[in-house]
Design a protein around this nucleic acid. Sequence first.
DNA 1: ATCTACCGCCCCCGAACGTTCGGCCGGACC
DNA 2: GGTCCGGCCGAACGTTCGGGGGCGGTAGAT
Lengths: 212, 212
Amino acid sequence: MKTYDRIRVAVVEDDEVLREAMVEALEPDPALKVVGAFADAEAFNAAVHERPPTVVVMDLNLPGMSGIECTRRLKLHWPQVQVLVCTVQDDDDSLFNALCAGATGYLLKDARPAQVVEAVKTIASGGSPMSAGIARRVLASFNAPRKAAKEIDLLSQRERQVLEELARGLRYKEIADTLNLSIDTVRTHVRNLYDKLQVGSRTDALNKLYPR
Amino acid sequence: MKTYDRIRVAVVEDDEVLREAMVEALEPDPALKVVGAFADAEAFNAAVHERPPTVVVMDLNLPGMSGIECTRRLKLHWPQVQVLVCTVQDDDDSLFNALCAGATGYLLKDARPAQVVEAVKTIASGGSPMSAGIARRVLASFNAPRKAAKEIDLLSQRERQVLEELARGLRYKEIADTLNLSIDTVRTHVRNLYDKLQVGSRTDALNKLYPR
DNA sequence: ATCTACCGCCCCCGAACGTTCGGCCGGACC
DNA sequence: GGTCCGGCCGAACGTTCGGGGGCGGTAGAT
């Protein structure tokens, strides 16, 4: 009979006490197998080349290379490895940079050991565990960009249409054609919407409406 | 002694059987109070004006106004109301449109009644409950935009710098100043990076590099 | 009936932009 | 040696863009 395939877990955490506690929580679980515990990103990187784990429990605040950068590099070479961030950092920068780097889970350090174990299993089975407040902030980020442009509702319907085509990179002449207008009319609308948006160029308008 | 403040819950669900089942699952819980159950968005809208609930369990596929549109309008007037989407729709469009509309929870209909009750409590206490696969897709959306631009690594170092400033809306003269170049040199770089990117204008380049 | 906002069109002008040419230099390749 | 190529720089040129006027018409609000 084939033995059960245990989830291969690695831990990257500079605090020795926490790291040991983490391992002690994970190891006894029959579904998990801790294949490495590292005090910094460099040690982890050196070891991962041999055989990558299934899940990496990653601290963010590491000496040397940050956990975010470590995550980025890891996902670059082994996209299938799941990174579960476990950190005290609960600011938006850390959170979203980690997610953009490829993390698929985010726990705060106030999580109890049992929760970490549960999260590892969740992430390995296709889920994305997050602390409660974290999940809320992630979802809130989707409708937050409402504040992007407030002046936009100062625009008339026509001006919005012109802006639309403007944003697509069409020249005045082309906009005039697609909207059945004269070039000078387009010009007028552009002028008006520019000072409503308080910008001085096409690119300014784009950067104002769709900030990156 | 003051009675415990129960979470006021409304249900918007067109399927009568599901709606009733939902209510039957929620009502007995001592922490919850079902203040309304509606078969469509219009009925809900008419009733919500009196006193909005704390949490709305919202179906997406409704007759008439969609659950997404209903959510958008609801959040417009009562941003503090939490919307928990509960639907069979598990496509990315429904998901992200709902989130952009202001939903702060997303359950698939395969959730068990007890999970729905749990999710309502979670969402009321500042969390954001999601089905496992949903959460993963949400987080994956953050590092997905890797595919942004492919031709970008054809650019030389100088051209990348110019492009950077170009994207910020700076004029050629300004770019020349910040990079200590002649305006004409900037022009040349722009020209070269334009045909590497196969575009014909600043705006084209932006739309190619940062598609919305 | 006046005022205001939006729409459409026209003229002009200076500045910015996109394009075409050319030159210089260093490395690669025959 | 020669030659090809790419990155870098520059001058000149025609076009587009941003911004300034003004004119007429419609629709709603005061």
